[in-house]
Design a protein around this nucleic acid. Structure first.
Length: 815
DNA sequence: ACTATCCGCATTTTT
DNA sequence: TGCGGATAGT
């Protein structure tokens, strides 16, 4: 099967001065060239972590220690996953598609689609994002007359998500009090609802695929054998379930020790663990070392980002934390400028000082605006700063707004699209049924829900049971969807979306709305998104789900593998296949996910870009959390006050202060050249002026690296309370979350576009009658893609409409 | 069904 | 202070 001998014994064949390894420092080199076995890499801020990770993969491939199919690299964000793929393909002429590089949720999705039957899901299951989940919870609350005072939907949602993150099904939750019992009951009901509707939430994606691996020995064996090299990014941010999931893939646990097949490399930084509040467990690092019997720990402490005054400050600060694995950043750069500290009288004066400093930086020191960031602990702090920037006509951009796929108008359009795919998706039904308004009010909905409940069916199916005018309106809506479904048969994604926008009346509705122009523009952008999703290079590629025997061995090879780069050794089993729409191909039947389902999945899993767009010439405003992983020439951290930073709410639970300190550590280490800290004696908070003393973190910084700036004696002019703040929400930089979705500039070279093969003479076109071994006779509705990508949408009278990969499906033309 | 108004609430957030 | 959600009024 795979070359075991290569993995266990043989020395790497690449010479140490291979160009791949050039310019790596000693610790980086050690990490990159680790021989087989588990390892923990403590990667300090700015230590070249991503570089090490990607070079490691490249080195494994180049030295023949691994094949693309044997690698699993998992990250938290799509951005990180994309960056890894991009850098990798810039390094090696490697087929990135063969590798499983993605987010936890993205990879879980892939597993579940490929093995949907074993996982007990429809292949086209839809994914609920946090908004969808909340509306599903609310709907369920209403249906079961839950006292929403005692059990706020938000809290129930939080409870459910929390349980899943801990790997707990309703039956696993320890019930200590009546309230918890009620919540667990609700959790149970929620699960049943999701299952009935064929939808999964983010937590479910993780939990379900964990259970899949846990409960299906042959699948587990298969993937364990396949993934000889597992690499985990930001390991300090993993929650309990994610770690458990990784363990399933890595090997079997015997008496608390992992009997692993390949090797697991966990990369993380305990000092940058700032997500405990959402279930991240730094303790996973220690558990990993113990359970995997990790022999190698490498610290990446050489920092390539900041001058030493900044670094010294970070080191000194974080040394006040007790529970640390221990790490100290160093640099070969000089001290640089001192860290400037400013004490303002009011929050407004603080903001004005920041703005003034920024103007100086740009004017006198040649700093680029997009290389300057203003960081704060909580979003509310941005307001004053925005005002000041706006008044000074300094372009800026705020992060943290709604992302593309989260916008209301987009969610509405997606709801229609989802209903086309699955009429029983009640969440989407509820969203679409009366938007745009079509005379279906709360009363009608209530009747419908009652009907659905009493007959145990979906809202869509219950429509016929509603009498009178309400029933007629509802019937018209369902009919409209059905007609639309008919009409879009055989249409491509772009045409489907256009049809939905038209038939739903969404465009029409927004045309009549005074603020609707932006929304229409976004809806147009959705059409483009659909278009590029199918056409463009660079979207998620997925795997062929091969039939496996009871030992997890593949029963058959994928014929598609023959079309791939022959120079790369290919593992048996699950092989990559070109599926621009990111589909999964069932090798038995050739069935692929419809482009629409793939697109909807993409929309749920990747809400759109929120991150920096290069060359925007705008000062960057964001929370400290949002700044993690980024770097800037100059960084301002405002609101350095007791109660704000460290935040008062964080001081309750144990470890709260330490997490705040790590947060501050993250903030400091974002800066390359200049760091400015400021605090204000007075601050408008919740409508009241509050007095704050300066943050204790100042006392933890080295006096020698700081330079205190006292405010100049100012006249009243500077202290003027803001009168009539009648500026629009759109700031100079375009306001929050401006169009990040399509056509962004890539920081790294995009993967080489493989030459398009000429379409093989499959001789199919719309209308052709074909025969399939399993599905019988059918009629071709549409063809998409070329070469190995080509797939046909075929309507089988008995099995419905399916997308089939022509490279795999055995279709014969019937005359 | 849509708008006006009032009340309560206010770290951090990716998938 | 300023927002979102829920309610009451047309």
């Amino acid at each position: 099967m795979f070359p075991l001998d290569l993995l266990s014994g043989a020395e790497p064949s690449a010479s140490p001065d291979s160009p791949l390894l050039a310019h790596l420092n000693e610790e980086q080199l050690a990490a990159v060239t680790l021989s087989a076995g588990h390892a923990l890499i403590l990667a300090g801020a700015g230590s070249g972590k991503t570089r090490v990770l990607t070079t490691r993969i490249a080195w494994l491939l180049q030295t023949g220690q691994a094949t693309p199919a044997g690698i699993l690299a998992v990250t938290f964000t799509n951005k990180a996953a994309k960056e890894m793929s991009a850098r990798l393909s810039a390094m090696l002429p490697v087929n990135v598609r063969g590798m499983w590089i993605g987010t936890f949720h993205g990879l879980c999705n892939r597993l579940l689609r490929a093995h949907h039957q074993a996982a007990g899901l429809p292949q086209s299951f839809q994914i609920l994002d946090t908004q969808d989940q909340l509306s599903a919870v609310k709907r369920l609350c209403k249906q079961h007359n839950v006292d929403e005072e005692r059990f706020p939907p938000k809290q129930l949602q939080y409870f459910i998500a929390g349980c899943k993150e801990e790997g707990q099904r309703p039956g696993d939750v320890a019930v200590s009090d009546p309230d918890t019992r009620r919540k667990v009951e609700f959790y149970q009901l929620y699960e049943e609802q999701c299952q009935r509707e064929g939808v999964v939430d983010f937590g479910e994606l993780m939990l379900r695929s964990y259970e899949l691996l846990r409960d299906q020995p042959h699948l587990r064996a298969h993937y364990q054998r396949r993934f000889q090299h597992i690499l985990v990014d930001e390991f300090q941010d993993t929650n309990r379930l994610q770690y458990a999931w990784l363990k399933q893939l890595a090997g079997d646990e015997v008496e608390g020790r992992m009997q692993a097949h390949g090797s697991v490399i966990a990369v993380g930084d305990d000092d940058q663990s700032i997500y405990a509040f959402r279930g991240a467990r730094v303790g996973n690092m220690a558990d990993f070392v113990r359970e995997f019997d990790v022999q190698r720990q490498i610290k990446l402490e050489q920092n390539y980002r900041s001058f030493s005054n900044i670094l010294d400050s970070a080191n000194a600060l974080i040394s006040h934390n007790s529970r640390r694995l221990g790490k100290n950043l160093r640099t070969t750069q000089g001290p640089g400028e001192p860290v400037r500290v400013y004490e303002a009288h009011t929050d407004l004066a603080e903001a004005q000082w920041i703005v003034e400093e920024i103007r100086q930086l740009v004017k006198n020191d040649g700093f680029e605006r997009q290389e300057i960031a203003i960081l704060y602990r909580s979003n509310a702090q941005s307001r004053v700063i925005e005002t000041a920037l706006f008044n000074a006509a300094v372009p800026y951009r705020v992060y943290g707004g709604l992302r593309f796929f989260e916008r209301a108008e987009i969610k509405h359009a997606l709801a229609y699209l989802r209903l086309l795919e699955n009429p029983h998706d009640d969440t989407s039904f509820m969203r679409a049924v009366n938007f745009p308004p079509r005379g279906i009010g709360a009363r009608s909905i209530e009747l419908l829900q009652d009907a659905a409940r009493s007959s145990g069916c979906s809202l869509s199916d219950a429509v016929t049971a509603v009498p009178g005018k309400a029933g007629a309106n509802l019937g018209a809506f369902v009919a409209k969807i059905e007609v639309l479904r008919e009409q879009t048969q055989g249409k491509n994604l772009r045409q489907i979306i256009e049809a939905v926008l038209d038939a739903s009346g969404l465009i029409e509705h927004y045309r009549n709305e005074k603020e609707g122009a932006d929304r229409i523009e976004n809806l147009q952008e959705l059409v483009n998104a659909g278009e590029s999703f199918v056409t463009q290079e660079g979207f998620g590629r997925d795997a062929v789900a091969l039939p496996l025997d009871e030992h997890g061995q593949a029963l058959r090879q994928s014929p598609v593998s023959q079309g791939l780069d022959p120079s790369l050794p290919v593992l048996d089993e699950v092989l990559p296949v070109l599926q621009p729409q990111g589909g999964i191909v069932d090798i038995d039947t050739g069935e692929t996910l419809s482009p629409l389902v793939a697109f909807l999945t993409h929309a749920a899993l990747e809400a759109g870009d929120n991150q920096a767009q290069a060359g925007q010439d705008a000062v960057q405003l964001m929370t400290v959390h949002a700044s993690k992983g980024l770097e800037f020439d100059a960084v301002f951290i405002g609101g350095m006050e007791e109660g704000l930073f460290p935040h008062e709410n964080a001081m309750n639970d144990s470890g709260g202060l330490e997490e705040e300190r790590r947060l501050m550590y993250v903030a400091i280490t974002r800066a390359r050249k200049r760091l400015y800290l400021s605090h204000s004696q007075t601050r408008m908070l919740h409508g009241q002026t509050r007095f704050h003393i300066k943050s204790r973190f100042f006392d933890e910084l080295p006096e020698s690296a700081l330079k205190w700036i006292t405010p100049k004696q100012q006249g009243f002019g500077t202290f003027m309370p803001q009168g009539g703040g009648g500026y629009g929400s759109a700031g100079y930089g375009g306001g929050r979350g401006q169009g990040g979705w399509g056509g962004k500039t890539e920081t790294f070279a995009s993967p080489p576009v493989p030459p398009q093969k000429a379409a093989p003479g499959h001789g199919l076109s719309a209308g052709t009658a074909v025969f399939h071994n399993k599905f019988g006779e059918g009629k071709v509705l549409a063809i998409e893609g070329t070469g190995d990508d080509a797939r046909a949408q075929v309507n089988f009278p008995r099995h419905g409409t399916k997308w089939l990969a022509l490279a795999i499906a055995k279709l014969t033309i019937v005359d």
